[in-house]
Design a protein around this nucleic acid. Structure first.
Lengths: 122, 122
DNA sequence: GTAACCGGTAACTTAAAGGAAACTATCATA
DNA sequence: TATGATAGTTTCCTTTAAGTTACCGGTTAC
């Protein structure tokens, strides 16, 4: 196992680095709404996903949480935010192409959760 | 996408079920120590991993948290607990074969975390 | 008899996450 | 002038996750 850096060198991660990496992942993707938002936006690439639209369509998601989660995702380059000059202004959120890379991971979690529920039932 | 149940039927999951599944996964695997413990035990299949040994070797992990995380993992059939009649008694924890299935998911998280750190640096 | 080892538990504290409701500011329509 | 839309922010509150310290019962070695 190893990543490849800019110069093409294999980067073997130490045990501690691996742990940090895992915690990073859980911290960045792990909130209550983050993966959900990424999946939501990934499944609506052709639509104009504004703040209010997202909030209306995801039940239970408050403005405060939505604003925070969107900010976090943007900071991590997973989504983009663009202000559009309509009146009143609208703001559109999109998954970045980099953000699309998270999807397989999210689907793995979905699948594991489904399998696990079946497993526990036995 | 779909799981296969006992009778071989394809189970298509609704959107809501998928979300629940994802949250289940994060809840079951998402604590501060759970995935770390699973990886720890998975890498030490040949050793006798007792409570104290684990606590000694994982720095920062208190008895309380260790006991709690082990209980949670056991409830979810991911590890097994067996009391051994030594004096004083020791308790051995092992990953179950079912628990081993979590490893790929954990490695994905590790890999994503490493890649992401590289990505953010640019 | 007392100190140390094992596998925990209980009580308390702190830090972070999350939720509800009200509020801001700008513009448009009725 | 009042109402409603968009995109948030602010305040207050509750819940949850996690850490700290002290302790228990049983056993053995000194």
């Amino acid at each position: 196992m190893g990543t490849i850096d800019i110069d093409g060198n294999i980067q073997e991660a130490t045990c501690k680095q691996e742990l940090t990496a895992m915690r990073d992942s859980l911290e960045i993707l792990g909130g209550k709404w983050k993966l959900m938002l990424l999946r939501y936006l990934s499944n609506r690439l052709e639509e104009k996903n504004t703040f209010k639209k997202i909030q209306r369509e995801i039940e239970g998601l408050s403005a405060k949480m939505l604003a925070k989660e969107l900010k976090d995702l943007e900071l991590n380059l997973l989504i983009s935010r663009s202000v559009i000059n309509t009146k009143p202004v609208t703001v559109e959120y999109k998954v970045t192409s980099y953000g699309l890379n998270v999807l397989p991971l999210a689907e793995n979690l979905v699948q594991w959760g489904l399998d696990h529920r079946a497993q526990i039932k036995r």
